[in-house]
C-alpha cells in the first residue's frame, strides 16, 4: 500500500509456527516483524507462547512461503472428489470379516 516519504525499510515479516507439545506438528499461529531469525524466534516466544502454548518454534520469512492460488482451487482439488475408492468405506466387506 502507499508509503510515505519519511519511512525507512521495515523489518521483514516472519510467519510463526508453534509445536504445542512433543509428538504434534508445528502449526501456523500468525506473523510478526523482526530484523533476523534469532529475533523472530525471541519475539515469537513473547507474542505467541506466553501461556505455555508451545515447546518449539519455527520462524519462516514470509517472502519464502509459496502458496497455491485460491482461484485454481477447483481444478486443483476437484479430481479427488470422484475417487471414492480411495476411502475404506467404499468397500463392502462380508459380515464374517472382523477387524479389517
Amino acid at each position: 500500500m502507499s508509503t510515505h516519504s519519511n519511512s525507512k525499510i521495515e523489518w521483514p515479516l516472519w510467519e510463526i509456527f508453534v509445536r504445542s507439545k512433543q509428538g504434534l506438528d508445528h502449526k501456523h499461529v500468525g506473523s510478526l516483524h523482526a530484523a533476523d531469525a534469532a529475533m523472530a524466534i525471541e519475539n515469537a516466544r513473547d507474542v505467541y507462547t506466553r501461556r505455555m502454548e508451545g515447546i518449539s518454534i519455527w520462524a519462516v520469512e514470509s517472502k519464502n512461503i509459496h502458496a497455491s492460488n485460491p482461484d485454481e482451487a477447483g481444478s486443483l482439488y476437484d479430481p479427488a472428489n470422484d475417487k471414492a475408492y480411495r476411502h475404506p468405506t467404499f468397500y463392502d466387506l462380508p459380515n464374517e470379516v472382523e477387524y479389517m
Binding site: M1, S2, T3, H4, S7, E10, L13, G30, S31, L32, H33, D46, V47, R50
Partner: peptide, 27 residues
Amino acid sequence: VQDEAGHGLYLYSAAETLGISRDEMYH
C-alpha cells in the same frame, strides 16, 4: 499490560494480510 501488547501485535499482523503495511498503520 503485556497481554495487551500481544493483542495489538496479533491484530496488526491480521490487518497486514489485507495489504496494508505496519509502518503505514503506525503512520
